[in-house]
Amino acid sequence: MLPVKSLYPLDITIAAVFLALIISAMFFTVGANRGTAYAEAETAEGVYYLPLDKDGELTVHGPIGETLIRVKDGAAQIVDSDCRDKICVTMGQISRPAAWTACLPNRVFLRITAKGGRNSEEADAGAY
């Protein structure tokens, strides 16, 4: 092996700086509550997820017809549904964790998961 005396202070500094960077990367990736919140739609067909940080649309089918869910600018909304009263449409946008909206006649329940919930439920508790 290389005798330590052939290393210069600068070598040790470089090694230490990068090691510190790696260790801080470790704390950052483990500890940080990163990721986005999701719009979670419970429907007759199953559960759907849409990330809130990406605009998108989703059509789901329920007992009385179709329900159109839209995610735009970090907020989710039921924009159309084949129900009579359209209460769900008038409920407007939701974006805060644990906020919800629903189209009960078509059995669609839309809610926002906690930030960093990613592929787990663990963060939901903190939303209340």
Binding site: L2, L7, Y8, P9, L10, D11, I14, A15, F18
Partner: peptide, 12 residues
Amino acid sequence: GKDRVSMVGVSL
């Protein structure tokens, strides 16, 4: 670093 750094630091 010029001569104050060895191959080890450069490589790292």
